[in-house]
C-alpha cells in the first residue's frame, strides 16, 4: 500500500503541536533536554529510541500527565500551563492509548467507551452509546460490548482502548507503546487498527518499535536518546541512511534479527 497516494492522508499546514525549548527533570534527572518539535494537522509521527530515552515522557507532557518545567507547549493553539481549564480543554482534544490499556475493569466495554462522552462532553446516554457502538465497530469488536475488560484478550482490550479514546472524537491521538505488552499474535490486529485510523486522516504520535508500522504510515520518524531528539527524518531516509552514530547503532540492534 502506498500511503502517500491516499488523499485523506495529506498533511496540512495547520500547526497542531508546538514544543519549544521544553525541559523536564525527574528530581535531579534531566529527562527531556531542549525539545523542539512541530506537528501539523494530519501528520503521523513515530518516536523511537532506547529505553529511558524520554519518548514516553515527551508524549505524556502533551496532555499533562507529566508536567514540564521550562519551555512552551501549545496544543491546538492552547498553551499548556497550570490553568486547569486549558488542561481540560487539551485533554478533550487529545486521545491517549497506553501500553497497559488502562481500561476500567469494573465497567463493561460499552461503559468504558461512553464514560467520557457522558461525563466530560455531557452527551445523553443514548447518543453516547450509539457513538461507542460506531467506534467499536470500527475497531471490529462490537459483539464484545457487554463484556468486561478482563474477559477479552490483550489485543481486543487494546482495540477497545483505541475505541474509547476515539469516542471523545479527538483531533490527535497519542500512542504510548501500544503493542509492547501484547503477545506476538495480537500485535497485528492492533497495528491494523492503527493503520486504518491513519488512513482516515487522524493525526497521531506513536511511541513504538514497530518499524514496519513506521515505514507504512509515518511521515516522520523521530529518534530520541538521553532526552534529546537526535534525528528526525522521513521513514525511507531514516531507515536507509541514518546520519547519527547512535541511530545507526539502535537500528542495527532492533533490525538485525
Amino acid at each position: 500500500m502506498a500511503a502517500s497516494t491516499d488523499n485523506k492522508m495529506q498533511v496540512t499546514n495547520e500547526v497542531m503541536i508546538l514544543m519549544s525549548q521544553v525541559n523536564k527533570w525527574f528530581g535531579a534527572f534531566h529527562v527531556l533536554r531542549d525539545i523542539n518539535l512541530t506537528v501539523n494537522k494530519g501528520e503521523r509521527i513515530v518516536i523511537c529510541g532506547p529505553s529511558g530515552s524520554g519518548k514516553s515522557t515527551l508524549i505524556r507532557c502533551l496532555n499533562r500527565l507529566e508536567e514540564h518545567q521550562s519551555g512552551d507547549i501549545t496544543v491546538q493553539g492552547i498553551t499548556l500551563n497550570n490553568d486547569l481549564k486549558n488542561i481540560d480543554e487539551i485533554r478533550r482534544e487529545v486521545g491517549m492509548v497506553f501500553q497497559h490499556f488502562n481500561l476500567f475493569p469494573h465497567l463493561t466495554i460499552l461503559e468504558n467507551c461512553t464514560l467520557a462522552p457522558i461525563w466530560v462532553r455531557r452527551m445523553p446516554k443514548v447518543d453516547a452509546e450509539a457513538l461507542a457502538m460506531k467506534y467499536l465497530e470500527r475497531v471490529k469488536i462490537p459483539e464484545q460490548a457487554h463484556k468486561y475488560p478482563g474477559q477479552l484478550s490483550g489485543g481486543q482490550q487494546q482495540r477497545v482502548a483505541i475505541a474509547r479514546s476515539l469516542c471523545m472524537e479527538p483531533q490527535l491521538m497519542l500512542f504510548d507503546e501500544p503493542t509492547s505488552a501484547l503477545d506476538p499474535e495480537m500485535i497485528k490486529e492492533v497495528l491494523d487498527t492503527m493503520v486504518a485510523l491513519a488512513e482516515d486522516g487522524m493525526s497521531m504520535i506513536c511511541v513504538t518499535h514497530e518499524m514496519g508500522f513506521a515505514r507504512k504510515v509515518a511521515n516522520r520518524v523521530i529518534f530520541m536518546d538521553e532526552g534529546q531528539i537526535i534525528e528526525e527524518k522521513e521513514p525511507e531516509a531514516f531507515f536507509e541512511n541514518p546520519e547519527n552514530e547512535r541511530t545507526k547503532l539502535f537500528l542495527s540492534q532492533i533490525l538485525d534479527h
Binding site: 496532555n63 500527565l65 485533554r91 476500567f104 464514560l115 467520557a116 479514546s165 471523545m168
Partner: peptide, 21 residues
C-alpha cells in the same frame, strides 16, 4: 494501579469524577 488514574485523566475526567466513577 496508577494507570487507572492516568486513563481517567487522559480522557478529561476531573479529579472528583475520576474518584467517584
Amino acid at each position: 494501579d496508577k494507570g487507572q488514574y492516568e486513563g481517567a485523566q487522559a480522557m478529561g475526567l476531573s479529579f472528583w469524577q475520576s474518584m467517584r466513577l
